[in-house]
Computed example of a mutant assay.
Amino acid sequence: MSARGWFLFSLMGVVWGIPYLMIKVAVDAVSPPMVVFTRCALGAALLLPFAVRQGGLTRTVRTHWRPMLAFAVLEIMVPWLTLTDAERHLSSSTAGLLIAGTPIVGVALARFFGPVANAAERLNPRRVTGLTLGLAGVTVLTLPHLTGGDARSLGEVLLTVLGYATAPLIAARRLKDVPTLQLIAPCLTLAALAYAPAAAATWPGAVPSAHVLAALAGLGVICTAVAFVAFLELIKEAGPTRATVITYVNPAIAVAAGAVFLDEPLTPGVLAAFALILAGSVLATAAGARRRRTAPVERSAPQDNQANAHVESA
């Protein structure tokens, strides 16, 4: 993966490593539809003016509205509500552990729904090893912090995983020529409009506390507007399956933040998990080796004495 890809990967590990905590803080005071509406409305308000300024937004929506609608439903409208509602009963670490299964599901879906379009997306032993190590690292990291939850909450997180695994495939295969802002701004706007009635019906009777307002603002600005721009660029740079490997890094970021800002213990188990996650991420996102193959040379005339080399991705 390129230097730009690694930068986007690192950025996404941070900005999508903190939503679980913010959702947990917000959903204790406001309804799940209110959380989703606020997050989408803030993100749309920030990104839509830039998308309009690029020009051609209406034409883009008319041309690609079907895959854009599918992306909005699978990446935003369903997963954000199910995840937010699930965190009313599950701990954030439990949710993070379950969401970490997204790359595995993404690989399975990519293989099931058709041939892999990019050599970097092909499944090979090194990538399988990386995915396995990453999942093992997340398990080691979160297992001591797990709390129980009901079947409904676990099912909601499963729906979230399916959405998160499917949407990047749509973005990579059907929306790769759509500018990032012109994809995400209309999707966030649609989601905000869809959740506006439910948010209005469950509007809190009093102004939430400063902590809740800060969590909602962080979800909208950092974890939505900034994160989606970076994530879609990461998909274009590294491919959909490799991009979802950030879900291995996210729980590690949450624990690191707790150790730095809340003086939570950094145990040997946590350090071991970091090592597994790092190794798994490197292996799972590494590009396949390139192999140079030289075609046979046919000399039919004195002037035709140049060999043509054919380079093929492994």
Rank of each mutant, 00 (worst) to 15 (best):
A3S: 13
A3F: 11
W6M: 08
S10C: 15
G13I: 03
P19Y: 03
Y20H: 12
L21C: 07
V25R: 10
A26I: 03
V27S: 01
A29K: 05
V36C: 07
T38W: 05
C40Y: 15
L48R: 02
V52E: 01
G55Q: 09
V61G: 01
H64F: 10
P67Y: 06
M68A: 02
F71V: 02
A72K: 00
L74Q: 04
L81C: 11
E87I: 04
H89V: 14
S92L: 00
T94R: 05
L97T: 06
L97R: 01
L98Q: 03
A100W: 03
A100M: 07
I104K: 04
L109K: 01
A119T: 10
A119M: 05
A120C: 13
A120G: 09
L133Y: 07
G137F: 07
V138A: 02
V138M: 07
H145Q: 15
G148V: 07
D150R: 03
L154D: 05
V157I: 01
T166W: 06
R174T: 13
D177G: 12
T180N: 04
L181C: 03
L181P: 00
Q182A: 03
A185E: 00
P186I: 00
L188Q: 04
A191N: 08
A191E: 03
A192N: 09
A196M: 12
A198N: 07
A200T: 11
T202R: 09
A206D: 14
A210R: 12
H211C: 14
L213A: 05
G220I: 02
V221T: 07
T224L: 04
A230K: 01
F231I: 06
I235R: 03
E237H: 07
P240L: 00
T241V: 10
A243E: 02
A243M: 06
T244F: 02
V245L: 05
Y248N: 03
P251E: 04
I253V: 15
A257W: 13
V260C: 09
V260Q: 13
L262N: 13
L266D: 06
G269P: 08
A272I: 09
A275W: 10
I277M: 05
A287S: 15
R290H: 13
R291Y: 13
R293E: 15
A295T: 15
S300E: 12
A301E: 10
V311G: 14
